[in-house]
Design a protein around this nucleic acid. Structure first.
Lengths: 158, 158
DNA sequence: CGCTTGCTTGGAGTGCACTCCAAGGTCATA
DNA sequence: TATGACCTTGGAGTGCACTCCAAGCAAGCG
């Protein structure tokens, strides 16, 4: 009861390792100088949040126009995508900042980065398991309230 | 790629509908008058949190000893278990309070309760899907940092 | 040129879910 | 009976992740 489905993908081929997600960029490389409001539209984040991410070091310094306005690149969009995934895992922002710092420090941090991602992976797996338990509980209760919901016994757990 | 594994349990039989989870109570019904610190030990919640849950109406008024100290029952433990599950889904406490109110209002709220649980169920399913997407991304990055981690191209998404 | 809309900043404010505090009463054990 | 661990309360404080504000510069349009 409760399959901890571990999603066995067809192991990525050597060439597309770490390739960008299947997501397409709004504009091709070269014309990728998005304003903050464009990035808001693409990511669903608010402009406040985007600036805040930069302030706390979750994004490295964003390119600027001649008047000082932010111009985001496709690379920045990719990073935001990834940050969004990490956020979904429940990882604290401070840990994401730590990861961002490791990236900025260069290749020497490959090992640390890998460990951080593996710990995150374990968390995600555990979380999926918990959610599947929860699903089972919800299903039991829903079926209690369901069509046959008039049977009063079992009120103990509502 | 990415199986949204929906855990098809062997549909609960009619008789154990809404039966308590497989969890055993620390003491049998009749001797179930737990102090707050016992409940802390059982649930992992803090005493602060338990009192706070009561204050905000997430738990109906807990039985008291002759001197006014809280004495939790097996029923309370079951409820806390369920609340714990709801918390895992990310449901806001305010919504759980709403559900608790529906329970207090009695049978007439069966329909609303069911709807609330079904909405929650949909959220949980969506969340599991998101986490599986995230897992795929993590796996890709981990394999990038992995054994073959020296191949420098693809630095784009780190 | 004036108008509107968009962007900039540092710092302050918000909402959630706890988390802790002070001051005092209670219970179990030596 | 005395010691120390445990319990009570209302209200204040914390940490996180945003979220907003005021004041001002900038860009496009008629």
């Amino acid at each position: 009861m409760q399959t901890t489905a571990v999603t066995t993908r067809p192991n990525a081929t050597r060439t597309d390792i770490c390739s960008a997600p299947p997501r397409r960029h709004p504009r091709p490389d070269g014309q990728d100088r998005y304003t903050i409001s464009e990035v808001v539209a693409f990511t669903g984040l608010t402009a406040h949040t985007l600036r805040w991410y930069e302030r706390i070091g979750l994004m490295s310094h964003i390119d600027r126009s001649h008047t000082g306005q932010r111009r985001y690149s496709n690379r920045d969009l990719d990073w935001l995508d990834f940050v969004g995934k990490l956020r979904l895992t429940g990882m604290p922002v401070a840990d994401m900042v730590r990861y961002a710092e490791l990236v900025r420090e260069g290749e020497s941090t490959y090992h640390d980065r890998r460990e951080l991602l593996e710990a995150t992976r374990r968390d995600v797996l555990a979380r999926i398991g918990e959610l599947q338990d929860t699903l089972a509980v919800l299903d039991r209760k829903i079926s209690f309230y369901g069509d046959a919901g008039r049977a009063r016994e079992g009120e103990r757990t509502r």
